[in-house]
Design a protein around this nucleic acid. Structure first.
Lengths: 220, 220
DNA sequence: ATTCTGATTTTGATTGGCCAAAATAAAAAG
DNA sequence: CTTTTTATTTTGGCCAATCAAAATCAGAAT
């Protein structure tokens, strides 16, 4: 059985791997994500390599083996189904369920997990719009534009928010930019590094390009 | 923060203390319950004693301090609310939720716990009839007779089953002796060490005195 | 009162996960 | 092509939780 520490390492290797174009995850990034010192990450990754869960190239980085990826996706499935359950059934705010799920993702059995999946009618995304890996088969992760690069003046819909910080999510929530809401990107001002958006039936908001790039949209 | 190991030690000290008339729990019983060697229990209990969570009397045994009891009851509250939630909401069998709850009881935040409590409308007992400690205030644990010692031929109701073994619980379930069901104790045969019971609208069952003593009833 | 027995405690060692700080290698800058 | 910077790895050590096995104690039996 993989400890929750092992599960977390694998999960972070997967997540960093997703958001980077390199095929190897640098040890430093992993250590930062795991909130451990670099040396700790190195020794842990060596152990995971011995267990065939990752491929480790000293001084270059680390990548998941098929086994490691399977485990990482299983953890992610638990995390995201738990988040959705906490929001849809127990009424917690989507802005704060991430932290709750960080604990529960290691404590839920397969049996309970599949009951939750059934209860929620086999959902495909969590409250942040993050795709839920299926129990078997491959997860589809559509390529989405962000508020920082999608076409202007077109009606679009918020599909996914790529940040779990409650402060940021509460801002997103207040501004009417929650997943599912319709929005129109009014204009961009590169000099000011700013994007102005009009969410459906809400006042316009202006946000910085960096924040805008974390909010993904799909065309209507 | 108490680790799940610490929580488990405290929980077991509490549970053993409940089912025994001694006011000190013997180290050996605790070690058996925790499935560790006696020496491990001794050193852990010393640490808990330093943390003021238990009162430890060398070679005599251990008891919870008020702080330790508070923590133990909090763990038990999580355990039992989770069990009921798994049965009532996710439809798991009451015969198998104990093991699930053993993990989840350490992973659930207070916020989620109170949502569950609200969702279930502040229940007072779990699926086995075990009382759920309230968030604040004192838990009432009524003294109940068992099938081994209650009056004969009187209509009574199954109130509580004092065993978490799925094998035993499945037998109880099949026999129609689940909490809430009405039963009549027909007669007892001390020579045969047996008790014969007729559950409402089910065929009579005969069980050994030991098994009968683990099934508690309340008068109708 | 002494011996035996069973429970308990002690001792020494292990494992998983972590840190601090020194050593090393690779990349960037000169 | 050397030097400096920066990332990574190594080393030595710590803490929580555990075990095996030896030592100790208390109560029971003689």
């Amino acid at each position: 059985m993989a400890s929750s520490t092992v599960e977390n390492y694998l999960k972070h290797v997967y997540l960093i791997g997703q958001t980077s174009d390199q095929d190897l995850v640098a040890m430093g990034q992993l250590a930062t994500a795991m909130e451990v010192t670099p040396g700790t990450a190195t020794s842990m990754i060596k152990a995971l390599s011995d267990a065939e869960l990752v491929r480790y190239e000293p001084r270059a980085g680390v990548a998941l083996t098929p086994q490691g990826e399977k485990l990482a996706l299983h953890v992610l499935r638990r995390h995201r189904l738990v988040e959705l359950f906490l929001v849809n059934v127990l009424g917690l705010s989507w802005t704060e369920v991430h932290a709750e799920a960080e604990e529960l993702e290691h404590a839920i059995s397969d049996k309970v997990l599949e009951r939750i999946d059934t209860y929620l009618d086999h959902p495909s995304v969590d409250p942040h719009g993050d795709p839920i890996p299926p129990a078997t088969g491959v997860m589809d992760t559509p390529t989405l534009a962000s508020l920082a690069d999608c076409p202007l003046t077109q009606p679009t819909r918020i599909a996914r928010v790529l940040d779990q910080d409650p402060g940021f999510l509460k801002f997103v929530d207040r501004s009417g930019l929650t997943p599912g809401r319709g929005v129109v990107v009014q204009h961009r001002d590169p000099a000011a590094d700013a994007v102005t958006i009009t969410p459906d039936s809400q006042p316009p908001v202006t946000l910085g390009t960096h924040a805008a790039s974390k909010i993904l949209v799909e065309s209507e």
